[in-house]
Amino acid sequence: MLEIKGLKVKLEDEDKQILKGLDLTVETGKVHAIMGPNGSGKSTLSYVLSGKDGYEVTDGSAELEGEDLLDMEPEERAAAGLFLAFQYPVEIPGVGNMTFLRTAVNAQRKARGEEELSAGDFLKEVRAKAKDLKIDADMLKRPVNVGFSGGEKKRNEILQMAMLSPKMCILDETDSGLDVDAMKLVADGVNALRSEGRSFLVITHYQRLLDHIKPDVVHIMADGRIVKTGGPELALEVENNGYSDILAEVS
């Protein structure tokens, strides 16, 4: 599904290398987790894959089902099936959540040459999916993320994911700022989307999210590279011993 080879990325404005030759392959239908200490480049990886400005790829490649991601505009990546759940979802005053969702869904359908969803079909689908995530009618009417609590913002991200049904979902520290109940709700939303044709890359500091979203593969990232890859037990090792042991072992 997602194949990253030797990816090197620096900040556009300053001479600072963040990703230093990152290799990662996420197979179709699998859930991979990336853990790592602060500053290891986890969020940068998610931004570079989704096409945010401000980064310069100096070497390497990233492909989604064989298509060169790095050559595409952010909206093209989305239409190709990539989705990033933001660590800090953006507030957009003046744009209703529903309008936003419908614009996004139809823009992607249009880009893929599919027919736009009718207002009725869209409404039916969004209501059903919002209900599962305990998102009420009021949240759907309000401007995008404006006045939402941390938990509401993250649930709103998962609602977008559910409506857009991407192939490759990247979750950037989706657990940050969530209490236990909210995390469970978000994780249930993600688990409901797990399927044979859909892959996940879950970026997190902590093991606890991975109790709810069980990964197939866990990677440890440090200083711009994947330094260790293993099964779910690797996350438990981090939880029990911290990163220092692992980092010492691989250095």
Partner: peptide, 29 residues
């Protein structure tokens, strides 16, 4: 707002549509 623009584009909204949507949202108040 570039951050909001990227957010919309990352959801598949083409750049011009995203700019227009944000422009309309600016006028909403």
């Amino acid at each position: 707002d570039e951050t909001a623009l990227f957010y919309l584009r990352s959801r598949g909204v083409p750049q011009y549509d995203a700019r227009n949507l944000l422009t309309l949202s600016f006028m909403a108040e």
